[in-house]
Structures are given as C-alpha cells and as structure tokens.
Simulated assay, not measured.
Amino acid sequence: MKTSDCDILIVPGHDNSGEDHWQSRWERQLSTAQRIVQENWDAPDKDAWVARIVRDVAQAQKPVVLVGHSLGVVAIAYAAPLLPNGKVRGAFLVSLPDVERADTIPAIDRAFAPIPREPLPFPSVLVASRTDPHCDYAKAEDISYAWGSAIVDAGDAGHLNTQSGHGPWPEGLMRFAGFLKQLS
C-alpha cells in the first residue's frame, strides 16, 4: 500500500505531540496524514477519545492506517472493536504506556486501564523500547501477543518521543513504509 492509497490518521497521546515530535513531522511530510484532534489533551477522557477515533475513521474517504503513540495506542485498542469492519487496514503503534502501573503513569491516564487484551481486527505493529520509563518491554511484548501485533524491539530508545531524541525518527518512518508495503 502506498501513502496515497490510504488516509493516515495520527493518534497522539496525552498532551498531544509537539511541533518537533515525529508524529507532527510525519503529519506535515505525508500528504494523506491528518491528526485525530481530541477536545482535551491535558485531561484525557477515554470515552471521548475513543468516540473521536471512531468518528474520524468512519469519515475517512480511503482505507485507514492508524499511527498511534503512547496513550493514543491504548485509545486505538479500545476503539478497535467499534470501528467499521474492514475500514482500518492496519495500525502502527509506538510506545504503549502501561496504564495499569501506578508508579509512572499519571492518575488521569490510569483511567484508560485495564489495557484491552482482545486481538486487534487488523494487522498491527507495536514498537517498544527496552528503556521506556512508562512500560517495561516484557509488558509491551505480552500485550503485542494478545493483540496479534508484530513486536518491534527499538532497543534503548526511551519513550520514542522528542525528549528521548526522536523528533525526526527516520528509522521509524522507514519501518512505517515497510509496514505499509506489507498491507498491499
């Protein structure tokens, strides 16, 4: 699948993705990419976030590929069974936060717990770091197996965001291009 063959819906996490975040860069770089805009980035509401994903997917004109980061990944997992059958062709998921962990996750994000464990109804990849402060690699790997997602070991990469040095993240864009090719 080429980027021109699909609507790429960017699903950021808590606090949105800043100007230099790889999601924002991809949104500017990929002609068919657009952000799913939540009403409240600072105080995420699970039901509102899921409803917005469902609405934006339903309104897409082309087959959809979702690109989630952090809390956006969990929101996608909650939205998955509510999405129009066959509309989403795949999901590229990055840096799952362990919303079930009280020690590193803000209470407002823990409202997204438990993490859904039902298989996703579309092909997916979960990119996880060995040094993500918000999720142990073993937990991300366990969830990826439950979802039926391919797991990608990003190594020592933190939370794969601007703070961890992943503004441009060219390796991620190459990995995403390979994922799209598999969806053909």
Rank of each mutant, 00 (worst) to 15 (best):
V57E: 10
V57H: 08
V57K: 05
P63F: 00
P63G: 12
V65R: 00
G68Q: 04
H69R: 05
G72N: 09
A77I: 10
A79N: 11
A80H: 09
G86C: 12
K87D: 12
K87M: 12
V88W: 02
F92E: 07
F92W: 15
F92C: 06
L93D: 04
P97G: 12
V99R: 11
R101K: 12
R101M: 07
I105T: 15
I105E: 07
R110E: 08
F112K: 04
A113W: 10
P114K: 13
I115S: 10
E118R: 15
E118C: 09
P119S: 12
P121H: 13
P121S: 12
F122K: 05
P123M: 15
S124R: 00
S124Q: 04
V125T: 08
L126F: 00
V127L: 09
A128W: 00
A128K: 02
A128L: 08
S129A: 05
S129M: 02
S129G: 01
H134V: 00
Y137W: 10
K139V: 15
A140E: 04
A140P: 01
D142G: 11
D142E: 15
S144R: 11
S144P: 09
S144Y: 08
A146F: 14
A146K: 15
S149Y: 03
S149H: 04
S149T: 14
I151R: 01
V152H: 15
A154Y: 10
A154R: 12
A154I: 11
G155K: 09
D156C: 00
A157E: 11
H159G: 10
L160Y: 08
L160Q: 08
L160A: 06
L160P: 01
T162C: 09
H166K: 09
G167R: 06
E171Y: 04
L173K: 05
M174S: 07
F176E: 02
F176K: 02
F176T: 00
